[in-house]
Design a protein around this nucleic acid. Structure first.
Length: 217
DNA sequence: GCGACAG
DNA sequence: ATCTTGTCGC
């Protein structure tokens, strides 16, 4: 990983501008044998960031492995710079898996970011693993409200560029914001998110990672 | 200058 | 993300 880790917004921005060119936006991943989701939580009292990884079988969506660890929080939350806060703990957690997953589903934006380098892109580039960004709310981009039924979607644009898709994964719920992280195209990312969210609004991997990351304490 | 703003 | 119970609605 990049050392030393950026301390200021200005330094972090330089890193984003430098690494953004390494993002691969087309499909470049193997048959999915193991998929994993990553999520983070904080305990302000001791300044620690907890990261959880949930590995699942893509066919049955059953949990096959999990990791939960803590790392000192090294960056404040600043919209547009979330990855500098979460990547250290997340990358360490992913690295503890005995075998690397074939796909990472990340709780946050990928290219639907002001400089096209959100958390999913950063974690994907740093680990080299295929990654998809799945956010519960919007950071940047304009979009038309998708139809209210599961499967409906509408493109998100930012500065005339297609940066993601607002996707309804469940009837009558708010859409999810899907964007390219690394080595997975946008159409494929949408297909995969729908496939891995057969019942609830959030993809099963993220639901599990979230549940695990809350187990700290 | 005034809002918006992933987790 | 976090502070926090019950409550409204499918």
């Amino acid at each position: 990983m990049i050392e030393p880790w950026p301390t200021t917004e200005a330094e972090a921005r330089v890193v984003q501008e430098d690494l953004r060119g390494r993002v691969i936006t087309h499909d470049d991943f193997p048959p999915l044998r193991r998929i994993a989701a990553v999520d983070a939580h904080y305990s302000d009292s001791d300044g620690m960031t907890w990261a959880a990884v949930a590995e699942l079988d893509p066919g049955t969506l059953e949990l096959t492995r999990s990791v939960l660890l803590a790392r000192p929080t090294v960056f404040p939350y600043v919209p547009g710079y979330l990855s500098f806060r979460e990547v250290p703990a997340m990358a360490a957690a992913v690295g503890l898996l005995p075998e690397p997953p074939d796909l990472l589903i990340v709780d946050g934006q990928g290219m639907a970011h002001p400089r096209r380098f959100g958390l999913a892109c950063h974690l994907g580039v740093v680990t080299g693993l295929p990654a998809i960004g799945v956010a519960k709310s919007r950071l940047v981009g304009r979009y038309e409200e998708p139809g209210r039924r599961r499967g409906s979607s509408s493109p998100m644009f930012h500065r005339r560029e297609l940066v993601g898709v607002a996707l309804r994964t469940r009837d009558g719920t708010n859409p999810l914001f899907v964007s390219v992280g690394h080595r997975v195209s946008l159409p494929t990312a949408v297909d995969l998110v729908l496939r891995f969210a057969p019942k609830w609004r959030l993809p099963e991997p993220i639901r599990l990672a979230d549940a695990i990351s809350r187990m700290h304490r």
